[in-house]
Design a protein around this nucleic acid. Structure first.
Lengths: 156, 156
DNA sequence: GGGTGGTAGTTCAATGTTGAATGATTATTA
DNA sequence: TAATAATCATTCAACATTGAACTACCACCC
């Protein structure tokens, strides 16, 4: 008589190595980027990403909910991050006229300036920590897998 | 007369897409794994990783400093995480006889049991969130890049 | 139109992380 | 060997995140 639970599909050695390398690489990348940003200004990578996403829209603003989805942050986390960025003058809030439940986070001039001041260092760090460590012939595979993951895990 | 600062080596479109996909994928993976672990028991992924690393050593124990390096955690973060795991009885501390500054974190039977109980669900989540999203012919490239990153960023 | 259910965003308490300071021990150097 | 420097781990206060509860608003349907 055997157990009801199916035997788990354990990772084989190669898969396990990949998984461990993934965990390690991700943590190392994050640490490196945060060190660089801290040296270059006072932004964390999360701050930076908020400002980047705003800067990439046509009118430099996004609804809170949209922003939290793009960043994969909880709403309350975003609320408080935007609070802090607003306190520093990098972001402002505006009520949404079409939907009065809604709020826009808007990039301010100071916020844009902070982004501009930090960007060169940060781009170099992103290169050093990830992009330039991918060989040209590997790039397509990496990009494809990452986008597949993003798409696949998108619901939840 | 031009500026002293060299023009930053901005990311091109493909590189930018890769970088964005990376950020998104990493956050989605973490969210998914934490949801799974929470459902399967009361461990976070950080808890789980502490226990796994201990379980993989010959005598189920590691020095705090060694463990913090493997996990890419600050020492104080690890101290407090081990505090919490110890409070739940999953880990115990032992003084190191060779170096009396040192402390071992030791996996307890309860800790091992918690790991065993959680592992099947977690392995499946790791498959769903990463491993099984990599096609067989892509696996070598992914593994190689991740290990290159781990190695390259290892100092710092 | 009024009721029902859903969505947007914030708040709050509990929990977790950071980074500098500390105490204790070991390593190095004069 | 004494003095100095470095390492191991913890502590503490400031800061950040989580998740549930809450307010306000919108959308649907009878």
């Amino acid at each position: 008589m055997t157990s009801d639970a199916p035997e788990p599909n354990w990772l084989n050695d190669a898969e396990m190595r990949t998984w461990r390398a993934y965990l390690r690489a991700v943590n190392l990348i994050e640490r490196r980027l945060n060190e660089g940003l801290k040296a270059a200004g006072g932004l964390t990578i999360e701050d930076y990403e908020v400002l980047v996403h705003l800067s990439e829209t046509v009118d430099q603003r996004l609804r809170m909910s949209e922003l939290s989805q793009r960043l994969v942050h909880s709403q309350s986390r975003l609320t408080q991050r935007v609070d802090r960025l607003a306190k520093r003058g990098y972001v402002s809030r505006e009520k949404c006229p079409e939907d009065r439940r809604g709020t826009f986070a808007c990039l301010t001039e100071d916020g844009f300036a902070a982004l501009e001041a930090t960007a060169p260092q940060h781009v170099q760090d992103v290169r050093d920590a990830l992009i330039d460590l991918i060989e040209p012939d590997e790039h397509a595979v990496i990009a494809e897998v990452l986008e597949r993951i993003s798409e696949e895990l998108h619901e939840s």
